[in-house]
Design a binder for these strands. Structure first.
Length: 431
RNA sequence: UCCGCGAUAGCUCAAUGGCAGAGCAUUCGGCUGUUAACCGAAGGGUUGUAGGUUCGAGCCCUACUCGCGGAGCCA
């Protein structure tokens, strides 16, 4: 049997149809019951008049608990007052399975309670809107790279050693080979892919065992990492700004309704058009000085520093050429000033912080070896990576975009925990 | 790891050291167009845990547990 969804009701005006779903909320007034039906595609008010249904059905419509699964048959009517523009004049209601004492009521709830009930919280209109926008962002990411000749090449999740040598990693036993670690980045593997296929991207979950406890951190998060052979830092920035513009404009075009549910100020998103401002680390430090923010030259930018810098602009800002000491070993140094790394961070507007980190990679074998020793990394673990410089090395660059921070920014959310179906955080790994 | 804040009904929150309260949810009743509907009634409590001060502690003190916000680190 053909299923009919609420989002398609416009095709069925004045027809009698059957919808399946869950009771989102209900109201009553004497001999009329109003049932708000939720079917995953949208919400619809079903009107149950006492005279239009059997006494048993009228009685049932009064007894239904929130989130009971039901089947409603009725005539589709145009109703300008209703959100979505339609209403169902019910002639029959069938109970599929009852729901008693549903814990999430239409009133306010605290964060802890909602996170404990995350498996049910996903049913709310707001959470559904976030998940649909996340999906649209992921689709935009795949479309963007697929349309530009990139090949998807995912990196392994279990890795033999730290990719960057800095972050704390989750560790697990790995048969006779000792320890394995959950990946913190697919980048080194993407570099191997770029040497094979020219333009690649990896897209998957990454893990950090850092004890970070802020609105921008998860222990498990998703990252997309393009890597392109023969791209220098400027090409990398060109790619990043075209990419972000494409993502934001795709969501604006196709998820206007969901952004409205979230009460997102879309004028802020409409401003996200190329070109993005590009400033050097030195210029960023000057902005901090101008705003009387104490800052020691040579340090990495902190969360408040990033907020101050990004608040100077109405679109994402690209900060490039950081002191190489605070950046990863694989980043190429600026030939014009070897104290600087050819790195770029893209800071989202409105205080959402760093959403992209990228760089041109060190392509010289001897310099890369030097870096590995400077960072006291075990050379044997990176022999395969060094091979990429031994056999036809070329300039190349890439970046990583954090999906959850991007979703939080585009949706205008307070915390990344709402951007992923089931968040993993330092003090929570359930449900 | 560090700094700050918090924990009272299923949920969100009140309660000068002196009777444990409200709204929502639940149950019952009312209303023929409700929009987080509304109106009336009822049930619902070991005040996070363990000690201490006091005639008397939800409230003051100590420790612990859990949570929230932030720092560092990062996307």
């Amino acid at each position: 049997m053909q299923k009919i969804y609420i989002k398609d009701l416009g095709q069925y005006v004045d027809q009698t149809i059957t919808l399946k779903g869950w009771l989102y909320n209900k109201r009553s007034s004497g001999k009329v019951r109003f049932i708000i039906l939720r079917d995953g595609s949208g919400l619809l008010q079903c009107v149950v008049f006492k005279g239009n249904v059997t006494p048993e059905v009228f009685e049932l419509s009064d007894k239904l608990g929130q989130e009971s699964s039901i089947e409603v048959t009725g005539k589709v009517k145009v109703e300008p007052r209703a959100p979505g523009g339609f209403e169902l004049d019910a002639v029959d209601v069938k109970l599929i399975s009852e729901s008693k004492d549903y814990p999430i009521t239409p009133k306010e709830h605290g964060v802890e309670f909602l996170m404990d009930k995350r498996h049910l919280w996903l049913r709310s209109n707001r959470q559904a809107a976030i998940l649909k926008i996340r999906h649209r962002i992921v689709k935009a990411i795949r479309d963007f790279f697929d349309d530009r000749g990139f090949t998807l090449m995912d990196a392994p999740i279990l890795t033999p050693a730290a990719c960057e040598g800095t972050s704390t990693l989750f560790e697990t036993d790995y048969f006779e080979l000792g320890k394995a670690y959950l990946t913190q980045s697919g980048q080194l593997y993407a570099e191997a892919g770029a040497m094979a296929l020219g333009k690649v991207y990896s897209f998957g979950p990454t893990f950090r065992a850092e004890k970070s406890k802020t609105r921008r951190h998860l222990t498990e998060f998703w990252m997309v990492e393009p890597e392109v052979a023969f791209n220098d830092l400027n090409d990398d920035m060109d790619l990043a700004e075209e990419f972000l513009e494409y993502i934001v404009q795709s969501v604006l075009k196709d998820r206007a309704e969901e952004l409205k549910v979230l009460e997102r100020d879309t004028t802020k998103l409409e401003a996200v058009k190329r070109p993005f401002p590009r400033i050097s680390y030195d210029e960023a430090v000057q902005i901090l000085a101008k705003n009387n923010i104490p800052f020691d030259y040579g340090n990495d930018l902190g969360a408040t520093d990033e907020t101050v810098i990004s608040s100077q602009f109405d679109r994402p800002v690209m900060v490039h050429r950081y002191p190489s000491e605070v950046k990863a070993f694989y980043m190429k140094r600026d030939p014009e000033n070897p104290k600087l790394a050819l790195a770029v961070d893209v800071l989202a507007p409105e205080g959402y912080g760093e959403i992209i980190g990228g760089s041109q990679r060190e392509d010289d074998l001897d310099l890369l070896l030097e870096r590995i020793h400077e960072h006291k990394l075990p050379q044997e673990a990176f022999e395969w990576y060094l091979d990429l410089r031994r056999f036809g090395s070329v300039p190349h660059s890439g970046f990583g975009l954090g999906i959850e921070r991007t979703v939080a920014w585009i949706c205008g959310l307070e915390h990344v925990r709402e951007t992923i179906p089931f968040a993993r955080m330092i003090y929570r790994n359930t449900p």
